[in-house]
Amino acid sequence: MMLEDLYRLLRSGHVQAQGVVDTITQPIIVLDQNLCVVTANNAFIKTFKADRDDIQGRVFFELGNGQWDIESLRQLIGGIIPRAAAVIGYEVKHDFPVIGQRTFLVDARRLVHPDDNSANILVLFEDVTERQRHDAEMDFIVSETRHRMKNLFAVVRSIAMQTETKGRTAADYRDTFLGRLDVTLRAQEISVSNTPADFEALLRQSVNPLGAERFHCTGPSVQLSNSRIMPVSMIFHELATNAAKYGALSGQDGEVHVTWSLEDGPRGRVFLRCEWREENGPAVTMPEHKGYGTELIQATCAHVGGMVELKFHPEGLNAVIKFPV
């Protein structure tokens, strides 16, 4: 029910007016010219945990040990109301002793009785605390989603632009692009949890399903921070992709062995040293030109402050990767 509806109902003096007001779920109170409580509905009593007998006839600002003695509310009722017929949506924030921090929108109107021309004040309270909290949460979620989508599109564009097209069929380009995009999205899912990622689990996820059963890992438990999840995933996915196309995983008997350890580095930093070793695959020769995969691995490793050494042994590729953790 709106303030004007209440005003017309109470001004009519109808015998059922008070009963109707008591059914309204919003707290309502009526004050006389001296700002003493004439009546309060059930919602007011319940919301502010008041006793009807204790508030009847008392000055409004003395109720509840002065919990309503709020400067902004004093200005509204004591100053604004006498000069205006109504005030709608006046926001009051206060830490109430009994119900805690609350935000109310206050509607108030002078209520002139037709019989004796006395002027009371009708005050209606709407608790918007939860609504404002919900709105703030939604604003944050929308803002965060927009930010993440913008970053994700930038990553997708970067993958698309940096995936080489020369000498490739459309199907080959598609498969390469989707493979890189898939590992990127899986790394994103891990990083948004804001918790460290286990290196071995991330390593296996980056390689899977490219010959997972012929992929062997050995090393201590290492936790990677969020900033390392994406680049590490891209590095090892690229190594696994190359192994599946040209290296050990392209044959039936080939295997990949990955071992790692922690080493002390300069300025007290700790480095992860990881060795990628391919065995029992086709003979390997030094490539005539540095491919995009090699460039991606080297550039990504450098981006996180590390280095990579690629050795094309005849029996299989050997890569040594080091980066700070």
Rank of each mutant, 00 (worst) to 15 (best):
R267A: 15
I45D: 03
S143T: 14
R102S: 06
D5E: 14
P220Q: 09
R157K: 10
G89P: 05
N318L: 14
Q33T: 12
G78C: 00
S72N: 10
A154Q: 05
R110P: 04
A17E: 03
T25C: 15
E263Q: 10
N318E: 14
Y246I: 05
V15I: 08
E4W: 10
D107L: 05
G254R: 00
K245P: 07
N151V: 07
T47Y: 06
N120T: 12
R180W: 11
D175V: 10
G66C: 04
A86L: 09
V21T: 06
D175S: 10
L9V: 03
K322N: 13
E213T: 05
E126Y: 10
E62Q: 10
F236E: 00
G254I: 02
R102K: 09
G19I: 03
D116M: 01
V112Q: 07
H216Q: 05
V308T: 04
T25W: 08
N34D: 12
I141H: 15
G281W: 02
L224M: 04
G281S: 06
V155H: 00
E278Q: 04
Q16T: 08
E238S: 07
T23P: 02
G78D: 00
H14F: 14
H313M: 13
Q26W: 04
V128N: 07
A154W: 00
P287Q: 03
V232M: 11
S72L: 10
I235E: 09
R11N: 12
R277W: 06
D172W: 07
V142H: 11
S225Q: 15
T23Q: 05
I29T: 09
E255D: 06
E189P: 11
G79W: 01
V38C: 08
G179R: 08
V222F: 06
N65S: 15
R83C: 13
F44M: 10
V320G: 15
V92A: 05
G265A: 01
L262H: 08
E315N: 13
L224N: 06
V207F: 08
W68E: 02
E164N: 15
L272G: 11
T103F: 03
I81G: 01
T241W: 14
Y90L: 00
V21P: 02
F104M: 03
A160E: 03
F60D: 04
D53P: 12
G219T: 04
T23K: 09
Q16Y: 06
E137Q: 14
H257G: 03
I190D: 08
M234E: 13
L224H: 00
T285G: 13
Q67T: 10
A17K: 08
N208A: 15
E278M: 04
E213A: 08
P209G: 11
Y292M: 15
N34S: 12
Q252E: 13
G291H: 14
P324V: 08
F125P: 04
P196I: 00
T25L: 11
H113G: 13
V98R: 11
R273I: 09
A319F: 01
Q298H: 14
K245G: 09
Y90D: 00
G251F: 12
E278T: 00
I24C: 08
T39N: 12
F215G: 10
Q252W: 08
I81W: 00
F140I: 11
S225T: 10
D5Q: 13
C217F: 00
Y90V: 01
F96W: 01
V222N: 13
E255M: 09
